[in-house]
Design a protein around this nucleic acid. Structure first.
Lengths: 234, 234
DNA sequence: ATTTCATATTTCCGATCGGATCCTGTATAA
DNA sequence: TTATACAGGATCCGATCGGAAATATGAAAT
């Protein structure tokens, strides 16, 4: 079912290629991508030994990865019962995420605008352009691609604010946001791209207050685009 | 050296008392308290097997606890080398923490004031009173007590904002803040208590804007109280 | 005395084993 | 038919073992 990252039957599979560096690290990466791509559905059980069999490793690195993922809120553990992917965000969780984004991101955009330089401007423009392309060739699939670029766009702004704490915190929030969205794949990406454009323009012309306002508007609209879906399932 | 939480020699120590629920959980708690109380100094090595011997448990729960602590930024791991307590915050880290607190806490105070009810008011008053007492009996020790109450005071406000994300994020920030402070034990607690008083008054009379402002002032002053120390050590 | 190389120790990390707990399903009785 | 109890299976969790990597130790040579 899932991909094999290590030979499951080879005798000296791992002794061959350059002595692996971090085994549990790879397991973590695989699990993370499986969760954010929804190959593992929310609330789906994640059995340690079956995963160990599938990936061809022992239970130890699996546990390590699951503990990390639990600390990040992507899986939940019930003692002596098992692990499972975190449940879909409730409407309440959702409000909390947007409330917090509203506190962090406009300020980050404001600061980033004041710190603006050519490198950052170029990276922002590039991320924005790729989303525009994605928008124009518009097949119905590839919300996941859009999500990746959107996350990158917001991450660049957070980084440009110069505060690594904001980068980390926002990274977590965006992961959950997109996890939520891709379940309902509300493909209203056009408006998002347009709002990004407004924001980017403000930042590029050094209008910090305008960037702050544009980011706040963007987050509010983003929230309103999803609200209709928040009560639907579950 | 450290305290023993499980009998290290008893034959059926754990089968006796009500079948332990979560062993790694306890190890986590012990390690956490050792780190925030600085019994384990920043950058001090934390060996898995020596800890296992000291606590009388195997390496497995130790590893689990360390992985969790690493995810929370309280310990750092070097592959195939070992774990160690996180280094003391740099002046830069410190600025980042305060920058983020300035984004979150005034807003939290504002919202909490609008949501104010008797239970919360009582808890706030109680936490505040205990800090006043601590201030008046003023022995030079017990910054750690002050830190605990201060964290509680701010945590109550965060909880009252109704946003659990803010609660969690702020909890982490406060841990690091106090970790930093207790190293330099700058015992300027009197001003803090006075500022808390101003903030509490605003909240209790339902002045949301005033509470927001008071919190912002409090954080700014708190930061300024520590800034002189940020360049000193290391 | 300093440098270099080889050895030994420390430590992590993955593998595996056994026990304890919880969940599920079936059978029996009311 | 429904509810309860018991048995079986699945799973986590802690313990222990062995190997690999990195660091520390010490000896030898220049």
């Amino acid at each position: 079912m899932t991909r094999f990252i290590y030979s499951d039957s080879g005798d000296t599979a791992q002794s061959r290629l350059k002595t692996r560096n971090a085994m549990g690290e790879d397991v973590y990466e695989v699990l993370l991508s499986q969760i954010i791509s929804l190959k593992i559905a929310p609330q789906e059980r994640i059995s340690v030994d079956s995963l160990a069999r599938e990936l061809g490793v022992s239970q130890t690195p699996i546990r390590a990865a699951l503990i990390r993922l639990e600390a990040e809120g992507l899986v939940v553990k019930k003692h002596n019962v098992g692990y499972s992917a975190a449940p879909t965000l409730s409407a309440r969780d959702f409000e909390e995420i947007y409330e917090m984004r509203m506190l962090l991101e406009p300020a980050a955009a404001e600061i980033a605008t004041r710190n603006m330089n050519d490198t950052v401007a170029q990276r922002l423009q590039q991320a924005h352009d790729r989303m525009c392309e994605l928008e124009s060739e518009q097949t119905k699939r590839s919300y996941s691609k859009f999500a990746r670029f959107d996350a990158e766009f917001h991450a660049i702004i957070a980084e440009a604010s110069g505060n690594s704490l904001i980068v980390d915190t926002l990274g977590r929030l965006l992961t959950h946001t997109h996890l939520f969205r891709s379940r309902r794949h509300s493909a209203v990406t056009r408006e998002a791209v347009s709002e990004h454009s407004t924001l980017l323009n403000a930042m590029l012309r050094g209008d910090a207050a305008g960037a702050k306002w544009a980011m706040a508007e963007h987050i509010n609209h983003s929230r309103e685009r999803i609200v209709p879906f928040t009560e639907a399932g579950l």
